[in-house]
């Protein structure tokens, strides 16, 4: 769920750039540090970025007949941490704007904040919470993916409501409108992404855990491998 080009007033667009920049710079420093440790990390992160982009080509089955696609930022936050996802998400959003005409350049700051910062941090927070209370990994992964998706949707609605308050009921009226309009697709999508997380990591646990080790992601395996 991206805000399209030209949709935010100039001051709002600029303000979201200002808000998002420190997170992206922080993420860029983390990525540069990882890359200097080993060139393999660069390739792994590039693969994660490409995978996040390609996820949008995978349609989730829906009982309503419509279809949606996952964002993958929750899984990315669990695997690589939220700072890295801030930079990877920015790269992916820039590619989506220029290669898919999805999103925009003046709305990039707002979209980065919603999808690459707020979503991953919220998902990661839930993941850490579940781990802290010794919850099962599958539950942590699925809740992290669902929360990241849901947070992105809520933050985008807040951004639009701030830009276009309702003529009668102000910000809250506008927030109800935007949340209500996108809820029929975004709420099932959040649940769907959580279910995808359970099935996906079940798939890895069943057939591919040794491969993850062989492919050079040993550090991440203990954090994501389903029991």
């Amino acid at each position: 769920m991206h805000i399209a080009e030209g949709f935010l007033p100039p001051l709002h667009a600029a303000a979201w750039f200002v808000v998002a920049t420190p997170f992206v710079v922080h993420g860029a420093r983390a990525v540069v540090r990882e890359a200097r440790q080993s060139p393999e990390n660069k390739l792994l992160l590039a693969a994660a970025g490409a995978f996040t982009f390609v996820l949008s080509a995978i349609k989730l089955p829906s009982v309503t007949g419509s279809s949606s696609h996952p964002t993958g930022t929750g899984a990315g936050a669990v695997l690589f941490g939220p700072p890295v996802m801030a930079l990877l998400g920015t790269i992916v959003l820039l590619f989506q704007a220029l290669l898919l005409a999805h999103g925009g350049l003046t709305t990039l700051g707002a979209n980065v904040f919603a999808m690459a910062i707020a979503g991953p941090w919220a998902g990661y927070g839930v993941w850490r919470l579940i781990k802290a209370v010794k919850g099962p990994t599958w539950l942590g992964v699925s809740l992290a993916m669902a929360t990241a998706n849901l947070t992105t949707y809520c933050v985008t609605s807040v951004q639009l409501a701030l830009a276009y308050p309702d003529a009668t009921h102000g910000f809250w009226g506008a927030l109800a409108k935007f949340l209500g309009l996108f809820a029929p697709t975004q709420l099932p999508l959040s649940v769907a992404e959580g279910i995808l997380g359970v099935l996906l990591f079940g798939f890895f646990a069943r057939v591919a855990a040794p491969e993850l080790v062989r492919l050079g992601v040993t550090r991440e395996v203990p954090r994501v491998q389903a029991r």
Binding site: A28, V31, V32, A35, R36, K42, L43, L45, A46, A47, G49, A50, F51, F53, V54, A57, I58, L87, L88, I91, V92, L94, F95
Partner: peptide, 26 residues
């Protein structure tokens, strides 16, 4: 910084390979 541009460039190169793979699997 070079590492960031290289990750972006590698992402770009990989995503076409992956899109083809995804389309073939689907």
């Amino acid at each position: 910084p070079d590492p960031i541009l290289e990750i972006a460039a590698l992402t770009y190169r990989l995503l076409f390979v992956l899109l083809s793979t995804t389309m073939a699997v689907l």
